[in-house]
């Protein structure tokens, strides 16, 4: 026992420079993440709805489980997150590989640049670009539909179309972001690996399959996990694009908690909603990490 302790101290001593490099980050996490996280205990009070703060036990959680809006938000969050992972997640990988196949370096850079531009815009801007583009009276999409003899559609208020619009606009803004990460990873793959595959008689497609993909495997796992960790927290995009007519299909946990919290001054209740969101995220992230460990032999953390 004692021996082990000594060894630990020895090891710490040995790695003290290494640990020193980590110290600022740890300090930051303590100051700006862990200390504010204590605020989550406020979910057990009536904070926000009165200046006389008192302990109310699980009242906020009970109210939450009785609330229809909470179930609706939960449902919408799951649907949108699932669609997000299915439709958005593979795209940057495919796009990065396709771009990598372009011969001209200049072309490659240009395409990469163009795809990346929307990421420079904040969601408010992207939202307003989509609203103009999809306008039933002047938007280019409806002009095209009318040109082919169709009837114009008011996408922004359609309960059928609104979710696809959310996913498409998400892809439009974010795909460049993911692509950049994959391209950065692909660009560090050792060219010798490709040459070796060539010698083995692999054609181009096989080389992508057997060299490129395995090399970016760990990045894919990381990106999947990072995506999952914030997919339930989707917020900015929805708050700028939704309107009262499509609350039923677009109100998610984060927007619900924001509305109830700061706007309607039930801050403790908003925090309770946030905590349940965290719980769902925890399940999602931890199970994915397990799966990733098992199938890809790749643990992200």
């Amino acid at each position: 026992m004692k021996n082990k302790k000594v060894r630990l101290i020895d090891r710490i001593n040995q790695q003290k420079f290494l640990l020193l490099l980590l110290l600022p980050a740890l300090l930051w996490y303590l100051l700006f993440r862990y200390i504010p996280m204590m605020g989550n205990f406020l979910a057990l009070t009536n904070f926000g709805s009165s200046i006389h703060i008192k302990f109310v036990g699980l009242k906020n959680f009970i109210r939450l489980f009785q609330s229809l809006d909470f179930y609706r938000a939960f449902n919408n969050t799951l649907i949108l997150s699932f669609a997000n992972i299915v439709f958005y997640f593979p795209l940057p990988i495919i796009l990065a590989i396709l771009m990598n196949e372009l011969y001209h370096v200049k072309m490659k850079r240009l395409v990469q640049f163009i795809v990346y531009i929307p990421y420079f815009f904040s969601w408010v801007v992207v939202g307003s670009i989509f609203i103009t583009m999809l306008s039933p009276t002047s938007g280019i999409i409806n002009k095209i539909i009318e040109f082919f003899g169709g009837k114009s559609i008011y996408f922004m208020v359609s309960t059928f179309w609104f979710r696809p619009i959310l996913i498409i606009s998400y892809i439009w803004r974010q795909v460049g972001y993911g692509t950049v990460i994959y391209i950065a990873t692909i660009s560090t793959i050792d060219p010798e690996l490709y040459d070796a595959a060539k010698v083995d008689g692999a054609n181009h497609f096989q080389r992508v399959l057997h060299v490129t993909l395995p090399c970016i495997k760990s990045t894919i796992a990381t990106m999947l996990l990072l995506n999952l960790s914030h997919v339930l927290l989707i917020f900015d995009q929805i708050i700028v694009m939704q309107n009262a007519a499509v609350y039923a299909v677009s109100d998610v946990l984060r927007t619900y908690s924001y509305r109830e919290g700061l706007e309607n001054m039930n801050i403790a209740y908003g925090i309770a909603v946030g905590l349940l969101t965290s719980l769902a995220t925890a399940i999602l992230v931890l199970s994915t990490n397990k799966a990733s460990k098992k199938f890809l032999d790749e643990s992200v953390f």
Partner: peptide, 22 residues
């Protein structure tokens, strides 16, 4: 360390507590 970091990713910090701390 990794677990401590992942926890912060999962447990969101509300705007009001964050403000109070800042």
């Amino acid at each position: 360390f990794m677990n401590l970091i992942i926890i912060t990713m999962i447990f969101d910090v509300g705007l009001v507590p964050f403000y109070v701390v800042v």
